[in-house]
Structure formats: C-alpha cells, structure tokens
Amino acid sequence: MSAGVLEVRDVQKSFGAVTAAKDISVSVPKGAIYSLIGSNGAGKTTFVNMVTGYIKPDSGEINFGSRNIAGLAPRLITRLGIHRSFQIAQLCNELTVEENMLLAGAIHHDERLSFFRHAHSADARERAMATLERFHIAEHRNRLIPELSGGVKKLLDIAMAMAGETQVMLLDEPTSGVAADEKFPIMDLVIEALRAEGVTVIFVEHDMEIVTRYSERVLAFYDGQIIADDTPDEVLLDEKVQRYVTGGPA
C-alpha cells in the first residue's frame, strides 16, 4: 500500500476495562473518500476523536504527512489541516450564521488573530458570504443558530470546518438529525465541495445508502477493531460485516 496522507499505525485506546481501539492501522490516500461503519460503541467516533486530538491514544502512531500527531491538542491538529465536523453540530448559539462563519474565517485566515482588525470588515464578510453561498445557506445569514433546521446547522458546521485550508476532513455522522429528504442533497453539496478542493474525506455513517453512494472505501469497525477494509460493495458482502454491522445483505 502506498503511503497515504493519513497513516494510522497500531493505535490502541482503552477506557478502564473497555478497549475502544485495538491495533487500528489504516492508510488513507490523498483525495480519497472513506466511510466508517459499525454499530454503536464499535470504535468509529473514538477513531475520529483520536485523529483530531480529542482523545490521546494509549499507543501507536497517527502520521499526517511526516509528522506524528497522536496526542497533539485539537487546535494544533486543526492548524495542520485536519478539520472535523460533529455528530451534534457545534455552533455558537448566541452568534448569527454570518458571525459563526466570520469566526471560522478569522481563525483560519490568519494564525495571529488581531486585536484591532474588525471582525466584520468588508473583506471578511465577503469571504464568509462566499462560503455560505457555496453551501446554499447564505439566506440564513442573519438568523441565530436556534432558529435553524438540523440540515442548515449541519451545513454550517461543515462550512465552518471548511473555512481554512483543509487537507483531511472528518465528518462525524453528517446526516444524523437531518430530515430524510435533506440527507442526499446535503451529502451531494458537501461531497461536491470537498471533492472540488481535493480534500481527503473520512465520514462516519450508519445509513448504508449514503455509504455506498459516496464512499470509495469502507472501514467496518467492531469491538474496537477494523474487521473489513475494502470497497463498499465488498465490505457490505463480507460475512463478518453482515453479522456484526449491517445485520444482513445491504
């Protein structure tokens, strides 16, 4: 296997007596779209949390380019180009949609944040609006977060994560909490935007239709281990995957 943009080697993580990750090894090539499947507690979110710095692995390496990022703080990993969205959209409820986007733009635009540069400057607003328009949520710019639908919240969460120079994007259940008829339009929009920039995507998903439609490769988790790593068709036909994850043929 050729060296990927993200190389995870022999990563282990335990919470007391519970082992959440056992010898996880994955190589994700640049620009690939991977999905992570598995039942609740299988280790998918633990994997995402370890890669993005929320959890420090007990052992093993997570190499991004030539650097081992295991145990780095989330903000440092973000600065390197690994961004994430959350299962429950993490937004600032007291700010408007535009201000949330301005916040993301301000942090990503310049590592040295200014005490003087106006957060609502014309340049910053233009950049924010361009991103909001790209994700088709510009019409909501003056609304506060609690006034938004689940789908718009998800899109804003992902748009904020995309404000910087993203190399790897981890999406934790991008369609959870989204109305059934919004799922595919949202995924179309997100995947199209990420593909256009050549971003490597890893997304956690329970919906097998979404998995087969959008991912190039699937990692199936069970009991903290990867039990299958192949194309969606192959993984969904795998006996172990059918037994422990999907409960039958897809």
Partner: peptide
C-alpha cells in the same frame, strides 16, 4: 475585533473555538 468575536464564541462554545 477578531479576538473580540472569539471571546464571544468562547462564552458560547469552547469546543468549537478549539476545533
């Protein structure tokens, strides 16, 4: 300023700001 906006965001959602 940008720092001022981040302060307001911190009050609201520290996790988002760190990420």
């Amino acid at each position: 300023s940008e720092q001022g906006l981040i302060t307001l965001a911190t009050r609201d959602n520290e996790l988002r700001v760190e990420y």
